[in-house]
Amino acid sequence: VAEWYALVAAPGAMEAREPLRDLRGALRAMLARVRGGRRDRVGLGRAEPTLRWLRSLSAFTEGEPGEGREPFELPRFWDALDQTFKVTSQEATKLSLAFSRPPLTSAEDCRKLSEDVQNAILAVATVYYWLPKGQGTTLRKMVRDATTEVVKGMIQLTETILSAPLESLSQEQLISTGGVWEACEQVSNLPRDNQAAVASALAACLGVVKDALEEMEHALVEGQDPYSDIVEDEELGFRGNRDTYWSEADRKLLSSCMGLMKASKACLKKVLAVVKAYGKADSPEQIAQLDDLADIANEISPSVDELALSMYPPMNQLAVRLNAAKLASVLKKVLEITKTSHVCPPSEEGWVQFLTGAVDHNMNKIKNFTQGQL
Rank of each mutant, 00 (worst) to 15 (best):
residue 70 E to Y: 14
residue 71 P to G: 07
residue 71 P to Q: 13
residue 76 R to H: 09
residue 76 R to M: 09
residue 77 F to Q: 09
residue 78 W to M: 07
residue 78 W to A: 12
residue 78 W to T: 05
residue 79 D to M: 07
residue 79 D to N: 10
residue 80 A to P: 02
residue 81 L to M: 15
residue 82 D to Q: 10
residue 82 D to K: 11
residue 82 D to H: 14
residue 83 Q to V: 00
residue 84 T to N: 11
residue 84 T to H: 15
residue 85 F to R: 11
residue 87 V to I: 14
residue 87 V to R: 14
residue 88 T to K: 10
residue 90 Q to E: 14
residue 91 E to R: 15
residue 92 A to D: 01
residue 94 K to R: 15
residue 94 K to M: 08
residue 95 L to G: 04
residue 95 L to P: 02
residue 95 L to H: 04
residue 95 L to A: 04
residue 95 L to Q: 03
residue 96 S to V: 05
residue 97 L to M: 11
residue 98 A to P: 02
residue 98 A to T: 03
residue 98 A to F: 04
residue 100 S to M: 03
residue 100 S to C: 06
residue 100 S to W: 03
residue 101 R to C: 08
residue 101 R to W: 04
residue 102 P to F: 07
residue 103 P to T: 06
residue 104 L to G: 14
residue 105 T to F: 03
residue 106 S to E: 04
residue 106 S to Q: 05
residue 106 S to T: 13
residue 107 A to Q: 06
residue 107 A to L: 00
residue 108 E to Q: 11
residue 111 R to D: 12
residue 115 E to I: 07
residue 115 E to C: 01
residue 116 D to R: 12
residue 118 Q to V: 01
residue 118 Q to S: 10
residue 121 I to N: 06
residue 121 I to T: 04
residue 121 I to R: 06
residue 121 I to P: 00
residue 122 L to M: 11
residue 123 A to D: 14
residue 125 A to N: 12
residue 128 Y to T: 00
residue 128 Y to N: 00
residue 129 Y to V: 00
residue 129 Y to I: 00
residue 129 Y to C: 00
residue 130 W to D: 01
residue 131 L to Q: 08
residue 132 P to T: 05
residue 133 K to R: 13
residue 133 K to N: 08
residue 138 T to D: 03
residue 139 L to R: 02
residue 139 L to P: 00
residue 140 R to D: 03
residue 141 K to C: 00
residue 145 D to V: 06
residue 145 D to Y: 10
residue 145 D to R: 14
residue 146 A to V: 05
residue 148 T to E: 14
residue 149 E to I: 02
residue 150 V to F: 08
residue 152 K to N: 09
residue 153 G to S: 05
residue 154 M to S: 05
residue 154 M to Y: 01
residue 155 I to Y: 00
residue 155 I to D: 02
residue 156 Q to A: 14
residue 156 Q to G: 11
residue 157 L to D: 06
residue 158 T to V: 14
residue 159 E to W: 00
residue 159 E to D: 15
residue 160 T to R: 02
residue 160 T to F: 01
residue 161 I to M: 03
residue 161 I to P: 02
residue 162 L to T: 13
residue 162 L to R: 04
residue 163 S to P: 00
residue 165 P to W: 09
residue 165 P to E: 10
residue 166 L to E: 13
residue 166 L to W: 03
residue 168 S to D: 12
residue 168 S to M: 13
residue 168 S to N: 06
residue 169 L to T: 01
residue 169 L to R: 12
residue 170 S to F: 01
residue 170 S to K: 02
residue 171 Q to H: 12
residue 171 Q to E: 15
residue 175 I to G: 02
residue 176 S to Q: 05
residue 178 G to W: 08
residue 179 G to D: 11
residue 181 W to H: 13
residue 184 C to I: 06
residue 185 E to S: 10
residue 186 Q to R: 15
